[in-house]
Every structure is written in C-alpha cells, then in structure tokens.
Design a protein around this nucleic acid. Structure first.
Lengths: 219, 219
DNA sequence: TAGATTGTTAATCGATTAACAATC
DNA sequence: TAGATTGTTAATCGATTAACAATC
C-alpha cells in the first residue's frame, strides 16, 4: 500500500489541514467533520476526505475525525513527527526572520546551522547559533544530519549555494531567491519567491480607469 | 476580447515567464522560442504558447517571441507597467527584508508606507520611510492610493490587520502569517506562509530508515 | 431506529499536451 | 523553397466533485 503516487496538489493541502486542526485543537475541539473543515478552509468536503483517504482510514463514519488523532497522522505523513535538521544560508534580515520564527515553531523542524559569506557576520550569533563560513557547509551538513536547506541569499548567489547543498547530499531546498534553481531530480526544490506572489497579485487588481469606451467590461 | 476567465495556474506562470525573459534580456538575447523557454523552465512549449495566446498574439511564426516586446506585454498584463503603491504592516525582520528588497526591485511596485503597533518602532525610519502607528493605516492607505497590503505580523494579529486593510479599501493582500484570512471576496489574498512550504517539503524527504521488512518499497 | 458522516466509485470538469495548418 | 515556429483545435490526462453504500 501507499504505492499510488500522490499528486502535488494533495501534498500542498496537507499543511493547510494541519494548521486548521492545530487551531481546532487549541480551541479544545475534539472532533471535526470534513464538512466543517471544508467550510473553514473553503474546500470541498469530498476533496478533504479523498485527500486523507490516500493515506489511510482516519475518520469514523457518522462521527467525523478525531482532531488529535488526525493531527498525529498528518504529522506522520509529512514526516514532521520526527526531528528534521535544517540549514540556512544567508544571515540577512530574511534569514534572521526565519531563525526567529523557528524558535517558536511547534513542529520538529529545527534550524541547526547558519551560513554566510560575509566576514562581518561569520562568528556572530543568531539565537545561539554561530554563523559559519560557506567553506564549512558541506562538512557541517553531512555531520549534522541536515536534510533541508533554506536559501536566503541574493539571486546571483543562489545557484552556487544550491550546488554546495547538493554536494553535501541535501534532500530538499526551500529557495527564497528569485529565479530557477538547477538541481539533480532527486533533490526537491520548493520556491518561496515572494516577488512572484506579488506579481500575480497585481494581475488581480482592478483595471485602472483606462479610456474604457463602453462600460460593459466584465460579464 | 479578454473576456474568457483566465485560470490561476496561468496567472501564476506569467511572473515566471517574466523572470526568465528578464534574464534573457540581461544576456542580450533578443528572440526566444516557446521551445527554448520551455526547456529553461521545465514547461511544455505548447503550454507557454497557449498561456500567452490568452492575452494576444505576441509571437511571430517561424521566428519566436521578441524578448523586449514580450516583457513589455507581460508587464502590461500583470499591471506592473504602472506604479503600484504597497503598504507593509509589521516592521520586524521579515518586514525589513521586504523593504530592503523593494529598494532594488526593477518593477514598479513600491512600498510607500510601513506600520507597526510597537511604540518602540513607531517613528523610526526604514529606508526613508517613517514607521506609522496602526491608527493611521486606513487614512494613509486611502490618501496614498495604496492598492496592495503586505502582512508580516504574528499569526494572532493577522486577521485584525487584514480587517483594517479591507476597511481602507485595499484590493490585494500578501499574507506571510500562517493561517486563513477572512476577507470579502473582492479582495484578493495571496498566501506566502513559508511554514506551509517547509511542511510540504518534508513530505518529499526520503523515508527514514524505519524497520522496512522487505526492501522493495518504491516501484 | 434515524441522522450523520465516512470512504470510495463514477461523473464532471478543467488543465495539459499533441498535432497541425498558417506563415514567417 | 525548406525549415522553423506560432496560434489553435482536438485529444488526453488528471483533478475535483457528486453520489451513495457502509456504518457509527
């Protein structure tokens, strides 16, 4: 079992379910139906049930899903029930923000190493983590069982950093720099380039008052 | 024309095309075919042609697309050929990072106002921008013709900030806080919650060496 | 028992890709 | 003219949604 390939769309929804469930849990709600969850997330209940069913039977007919149990199951599926070590390259403002966030995170992904190529930054501390020079990346990643790399350097340096990570045997990369990263296909790259988000957001802005001969534009 | 509803998938790809074209332009490449572009972006050439064809006929048969012309056209489609004013709430590290990025951005989205509720931060300057108190948000957004809001506050405050923006008549929101934002449907919300990205990245990690009775796991 | 809700199959819908006439 | 490549239609593929038997 678990053999069928799970689509990316499904995987992208799992963290959303997890967030919603965590919130329900914090409000001491013990059980939730796919309908309630769907309402809250603007998703079709059938879709939620189907997504979950790819991984097992987690609900009870006539009742719904036990919140705590489902949280645990999704955490297993996403592999965040175990500790996952993460390295960050680029100790700028963005890097700092991520490190800080990390401190409060309730899941088990931990930034355990930070790198930068700026001599001014090397040796300084961010949340008890020493900023290390790039030279030490490969060694540290291997030794520290670091499986995910976060790239928060300027666009021109991103590919170089990615190459180092690949050399170190990284399994996944979260890339905040604009542009395409070229990596071997066994390395998963997730893009978090907010300029893209901002540009597509602009598309949905109301059309500016251009000379619009007749008023009947949209449906 | 331009009446057919464009799918979100298409809109999400336009910024990617734009990035690639900008890079081609910086390398002084004047013409590109859908095939070349597709290779570079790991996309099907037919898809690229079809995406562009929703908006007009931008290419030349037998030749390809003029890079400069296509950049201009996509910028028009995304409405980033005009200046778009943006407000940011949350002058933390993440907010700082975005303001800094803004400085170097080549497209016409400009952060023109920054807000925070921390008295320590109010009145300080970020890149020549005064950090304003939240009280002034509605007024400033209206007066300053600000159309997009960026939210970089902790999760618990995000909805409140969103409400203020809606009150001020914002058209789009880029939300970096985890969780779902409730807004009227005419306001577009784009999520940039990196915790989601990180969680889905974890899904694609190699399965840990769990007791795996028989070796034959994946196909 | 009656009502609720799951897991799952079948139907629908939409997005991607292939194919090709038009044409540079 | 021959080769390349667009714009677009038709075919394919995959994802979402509806429907319902099973069952709590």
């Amino acid at each position: 079992m678990k053999s069928a390939k799970i689509s990316e769309a499904v995987v992208r929804r799992l963290p959303i379910y997890l967030q919603a469930l965590n919130e329900l849990h914090s409000r001491e709600i013990g059980t939730v139906s796919s309908q309630e969850l769907g309402q809250r997330l603007d998703l079709n209940p059938a879709q939620i049930r189907k997504d979950l069913a790819y991984f097992g039977e987690f609900g009870r007919k006539g009742i719904g899903y036990d919140v705590i149990y489902l949280i645990e199951k999704i955490r297993q599926i996403l592999k965040v029930n175990q500790t996952i070590n993460v390295a960050l390259v680029g100790a700028g403002n963005l890097g700092l923000a991520l490190c800080n966030y990390n401190k409060y995170s309730k899941d088990n992904m931990k930034i355990t190493a930070v790198f930068d190529d700026n001599p001014q930054k090397i040796g300084t501390k961010i949340n008890n983590l020493l900023v290390q020079p790039m030279d030490e990346l490969v060694e540290t990643v291997k030794q520290g069982e670091i499986r995910i790399g976060i790239i928060t350097v300027p666009a021109v340096e991103a590919q170089n950093v990615a190459n180092r990570f690949v050399e170190a045997g990284i399994e996944g990369l979260l890339n905040f720099a604009p542009g395409i990263l070229r990596v071997p296909e066994e390395v998963r790259v997730q893009n978090a380039d907010f300029t893209r988000e901002l540009l597509s957001l602009a598309y949905y802005l109301n059309q500016d008052e251009e000379e619009d001969e007749d008023g009947s534009t949209l449906d």
